[in-house]
Design a protein around this nucleic acid. Structure first.
Length: 424
RNA sequence: GCGAUCAUAGCUCAGUUGGUUAGAGCGCCGGUUUGUGGUACCGGAGGUCGCGGGUUCGAACCCCGUUGAUCGCCCCA
């Protein structure tokens, strides 16, 4: 037998106690809110053929080549642990004939995998909640999706984050803007940071959210998307913003907010902690809490018919960091077994079972030295402690109860009710 | 992929300029005490000082490597 304990995989986490409660609270709240908006629950495979992600993401160099968990299965097929939900849902939409349900509103949550360097709020196996509207090309879909996100955050008790909103326009608007940005930055190329000089070639839009002061000097005067929007794109964005205003969703315009992938159109958004707030401090540099956009170009890249769609995802771990501490279930009823005979243990187990059947949290204390059992029961914070003991002849004594009188009465009542049901 | 900081008991951490058997608190186990069994006290188990090399008479401490953690950069679907 090896004496070395295997270590957990880098970037994975074992979530326990208060953190696990916060995690569950995020998921439970999401499940409740998505029902209010009638998003239908879907469960997706954790892995797909590599091409599902490779084709939907495009050959986005780093992401596809270096940051996915890809492997060959025993049949020699390249598979990939899902790094996101959207591509798999799009695949399912096409292969299962879900077009018949369009416009389809779906929601899911679960683990995702990305081979990245772990840091605060960033893991190799992490978890997201996700919502998508597929087959709806109208701005009202964007509005509803964002209203749901806004309500979710509020119901989680997260109030110091704000919706940052931008439009990338339609395909033509986007290309024209991109070309103008390249022209603009190329003229000052040698004054940009090394990173941005590289970005100029492969991802010029990203220069806009550079943190480097050398780049920031040029950002204010960089071309704005608004100058390149078609009439139609302008109208679409106006409909989104007025819809948000009508829904009471606060937002700010973020002209430099962009998406890396080509299939994004029109609306792009992120919920970001307000500067100087507690949420911003809690998250460190991984600040975006919920992000998404309209991806009208995605279905075609997977070989499907052109289908408009919009969606968002949010990291559960990050949301959990912003949620107030959640209490684990408090103990109401402690049953102490003062001895080790079979009838004593049986009495303890039975009594606890009766209480739990009536919805009372209960726990049996029957291990360790007899004296310590009562100590533990007292320290557990139980509202009522019941003790079973035997006399010198081994006769089971009537249980003694300690605690606030009202609590004793309430739990005693629950036990009697269970006994009545059993008799009936 | 790059950088910085860190790694000592189950947990949180001490450990002085390198110098005998590596400590504390909490937790765990056992016991004593206490007139309302949450107190106090006594004792016990538990550590190859992340791992591997090196320097030295001698390394938890210095050097190199490695693994991991944390926080940034890059990336962010």
């Amino acid at each position: 037998m090896s004496t070395k304990t295997p270590q957990a995989i880098r970037g994975t986490q074992d979530i326990f106690g208060a953190d696990a409660e916060a995690f569950a609270f995020v998921v439970e709240t999401f499940e409740r809110v998505r029902r209010l908006y009638r998003f239908r629950r879907v469960e997706m495979p954790v892995f797909e053929k590599t091409e599902v992600f490779a084709r939907s993401l495009g050959e986005t160099t780093d992401v596809v080549s270096k940051e996915m968990y890809s492997f060959d299965d025993r049949g020699g097929e390249s598979l990939t642990l899902r790094p996101e939900f959207t591509a798999g849902i799009a695949r399912a939409f096409l292969t299962n004939g879900w077009q018949q349900y369009a416009p389809l509103k779906v929601a899911t949550h679960g683990p995702l995998f990305r081979y990245e360097r772990p840091q605060k709020g960033r893991y190799r196996q992490f978890h997201q909640i996700d919502a998508e509207v597929i087959g709806a090309g109208e701005p009202q879909a964007d509005v509803e999706l964002l209203a749901m996100a806004d309500q979710l955050l509020k119901e989680l008790g997260i109030h110091d984050v704000t919706l940052h909103l931008n439009t990338l326009g339609d395909g033509a608007s986007r290309e024209a803007w991109r070309a103008a940005l390249i022209d603009y930055f190329r003229a000052v190329k040698d004054q940009l940071s090394e990173e941005s000089q590289e970005r100029l070639e492969k991802n010029p839009l990203r220069i806009l959210d550079s943190k480097d002061p050398r780049d920031k000097a040029f950002l204010a005067d960089a071309p704005k998307i608004d100058a390149f929007l078609s009439q139609e794109a302008r109208g679409f964005f106006a409909a989104v913003t007025s819809g948000l205003d009508a829904a009471g969703v606060k937002w700010v315009r973020a002209g430099s907010l962009v998406r890396g992938l080509d299939y994004y159109r029109h609306t792009a958004f992120e919920f970001i902690p307000d500067e100087g707030g507690v949420s911003a401090a809690a998250l460190g540099s991984q600040s975006t809490v919920l992000a998404g956009g309209r991806y009208d170009g995605l279905m075609e890249s997977l070989g499907g018919a052109s289908t408009p769609a919009v969606g968002w995802a949010a990291g559960i771990e990050r949301l959990a960091m912003l949620v107030d501490a959640r209490e684990e279930a408090a103990l109401e009823f402690a049953v102490v077994v003062e001895g080790d005979s079979e009838q004593l243990h049986a009495a303890g187990v039975r009594t606890a079972m009766m209480a739990r059947s009536e919805g009372v949290t209960a726990e049996v204390f029957a291990a360790g030295s007899p004296r310590k059992r009562f100590d533990k029961a007292v320290k557990s914070g139980a509202k009522v402690i019941m003790a079973y003991s035997e006399d010198a002849d081994g006769n089971l004594q009537p249980p003694r109860m300690k605690g606030d009188e009202a609590d004793i009465e309430r739990i005693g009542q629950a036990l009697r009710e269970f006994a009545v049901k059993l008799g009936a």
